[in-house]
Simulated scan of single mutants.
Amino acid sequence: MQRDKAYFFSQLFDKRLPQGNILLASKIFCPDFLINLCNPIKPALLRMLATTLVLAGMTPALHAHTNNSAKKEIVVLATSTIIADIASQLAGDYAKITSLVPRGQDPHNFDPGPSDLVKISNADLILLNGMQLETWLVSLIRRSGRQAAIDTVTRGIDPIYTGQYEASIDPHAWLDPVLGKTYVKNIAASLKEQLPGRAGEIEAKRSKLLKELEQVHLFTEERISSIPEEERILITSHDAFRYFGDRYQLRVESVFPTSADAEITIKDMAELNNLIRKTEVKAIFPESTINPRLVRQLASDNRITLGGKLYTDSLGEKDGEAGDYISLLYHNTSTIFDGLTGQRLEAKEPEQEVPLILTLVIVALLLGSFFIMWHQMDLGHGKKDN
């Protein structure tokens, strides 16, 4: 009997209730001794009645189980916060979307740990940038043993080769809002394959996001084109703005090559100093994920403005100036425009404040000195009176 009950429940909650299980249910939930006490009622009818009552009581559980199946999330793992944000805007509440690389960290030199292996093992879909950004990812996927669907979201984008060797690729295509549309289209296509029942909703969000990116493009085009051509020189921490520069006709230079891990020579620094002096560029820009020490040094040595912080490889704080992909693009454009047109003032160091304790000590000394002088004057007057 216990085995019959287990079988019944497994069949019931598997949403495949065989025809014979109605009789099985009646036997389980209406035993023979109860039937014998109810002679006026036919046993078969009593069993059917009992079964009906039991199934009616289980209807809410069945309904909840069916709904949970319909709402089952897929697990989407992105390799950067930017890709994760695009996927989140497209998938809404239909998928659990996380970024393997946390906010504020550089995906170029990310060092994955055991917990990241678990994330990959649990993923249904992995979204990666490609273009040599995640060189650490391939071995991680192999070690996880996961057979998740994998999509390289830069499909269809012509890579820009940089540096001394042809194999060196700039992976930062997302910084160009026009190429950002390709990211959106590719990610939407992958999500539709995983969530075919949500294809219409994903498509609507895709259209909305594409329109927003077009607005960013028009805004950026208008701002950058208003800068005199000879002043369109963008110097940043590392070589991340090739696609952006090609789109909006800026000359792009950097302190570091594509990755901040690369070595920088004395010759490289000398060439940058010469460029700054020759072109009289107004500002040089640090980046959120790279130590700004060398950029600060260049700005100080050449007495130029340290421009506002740019966001390249990661989103900023969730509620901050670059908390999502669209905000990041607007922020970068506005920051570059302000710096190159001289509208950004160099942030002044705060004036040194006298510590409160020192202030109290000085006041106490002054009061003490005043009291001593008053006391001595009082004694002097007393002697004269005598």
Rank of each mutant, 00 (worst) to 15 (best):
M373G: 09
L329Q: 03
I35K: 13
L12T: 01
K185S: 12
R103P: 00
L191F: 03
T312A: 15
R303H: 14
K71D: 12
G323W: 09
L272A: 05
L55H: 06
S226G: 00
L191Y: 00
S69V: 11
I362W: 08
A189Q: 13
S237H: 03
T51M: 00
S334Y: 01
P18L: 10
V118D: 13
D246K: 15
D385V: 11
V252A: 06
S327R: 12
Y330G: 04
N68K: 14
N39T: 12
K71F: 11
R155A: 15
I74T: 04
K42S: 12
S226W: 01
R16N: 13
I157L: 09
R143W: 05
E212R: 13
L137E: 02
R3S: 13
I276Q: 01
L53Y: 08
W374R: 15
L24Y: 07
A64K: 14
K348D: 11
R198F: 10
L133A: 04
M269Y: 10
D158G: 05
E166M: 11
E287H: 11
C30N: 03
Y330W: 08
D301T: 00
A61W: 12
Q105F: 12
D170Y: 00
D261T: 11
I86E: 05
T265Q: 09
I86W: 05
E271I: 06
T182C: 03
H63V: 15
S88T: 13
E346A: 13
F285T: 02
G323V: 06
I120L: 07
K72Y: 03
H63I: 14
A204S: 15
T79M: 07
Q11N: 12
A84F: 02
A204T: 13
T335C: 07
A167V: 10
K5A: 12
K318P: 00
I227G: 04
L17H: 04
G163Y: 07
A61I: 08
K5V: 12
E280I: 02
F110E: 06
R16V: 09
E349V: 14
N291R: 06
N39Y: 08
P159V: 10
L306R: 03
G320E: 04
K15Q: 14
K318S: 13
L23D: 14
L53K: 09
L53Q: 10
P112D: 01
C38E: 10
H172G: 06
S225A: 15
G200F: 07
E73Y: 03
L77H: 02
H381T: 08
L117N: 06
E353H: 03
G382N: 06
V153S: 00
N122S: 13
S334L: 12
S254F: 05
T182G: 04
